[in-house]
């Protein structure tokens, strides 16, 4: 399952064949609105309006790395004793970085004399520098989860408010209806997922 292309499989099926293309367009818009295309490897959606049923299975792409301080900043000794200096190259993760630093060292210990420079008063820079370098600032998987749920809810016809979902490893299953959930619908979705997994582009099932 490694090395999937973004959205290498993207299938939308509806009872009336002609209605699949317009519905696919809605999903495309939702995916691009949520900027989630890069995270999805394979996606299959089945809508059966006559049963009030919406099923979606997704295989997420692997290898979304954690964002560490070392990835976007140079960490080194400061000018004075017991001080660590962080020179950031990218400003976007700064608010999260500040939050993590405040949590660990306290607000008073962190100063920002200049836009891209942070100074932190720590006990022992020697032990703290490697620690700060490895500090995780952002976990794309975590925000991904909420965006994925958002995508599922936006893609569903609005009235389908009885929902089942499961996210395990890279596999996301979502079933929605306006009627009480049926086990067979969930089983169907599980089967869809198995098919999607087997549908390997390399040709090796």
């Amino acid at each position: 399952m490694m090395g999937m292309e973004p959205l290498e499989t993207f299938v939308v099926q509806t009872t009336v064949e002609a209605e699949a293309a317009p519905y696919r367009k809605i999903i495309e818009d939702v995916i691009s609105d949520l900027m989630i295309a890069g995270a999805i490897g394979r996606l299959k959606i089945v809508v059966r309006p006559e049963d009030s049923l919406f099923q979606m299975v997704t295989i997420l792409r692997e290898g979304l790395p954690l964002m560490k301080v070392d990835d976007f900043a140079d960490v080194g000794k400061g000018t004075s004793m017991g001080e660590v200096q962080i020179m950031i190259r990218e400003e976007r993760p700064l608010p999260r970085l500040l939050e993590s630093l405040w949590a660990r060292y306290g607000r008073g210990a962190v100063t920002q004399p200049e836009r891209r420079t942070l100074l932190i008063t720590v006990g022992d820079p020697k032990t703290e520098i490697p620690l700060i370098k490895e500090m995780v600032v952002d976990d794309p998987r975590r925000t991904l989860r909420s965006r994925l749920v958002d995508m599922a809810i936006r893609s569903t016809p609005e009235g389908f408010r009885v929902r089942y979902h499961s996210l395990d490893d890279n596999n996301f299953i979502f079933v929605a209806s306006e009627d009480p959930m049926k086990q067979e619908w969930i089983d169907e979705a599980d089967k869809m997922l198995d098919e999607l997994k087997g549908d390997d582009v390399s040709g090796i099932a």
Binding site: T14, P22, Y23, I26, P49, P157
Partner: peptide
């Protein structure tokens, strides 16, 4: 009103 326009969706069954 004079006229009502109902904006519905994609599925003919609905």
């Amino acid at each position: 009103h004079d006229i009502a326009i109902f904006t519905f969706g994609t599925f003919s069954d609905c």
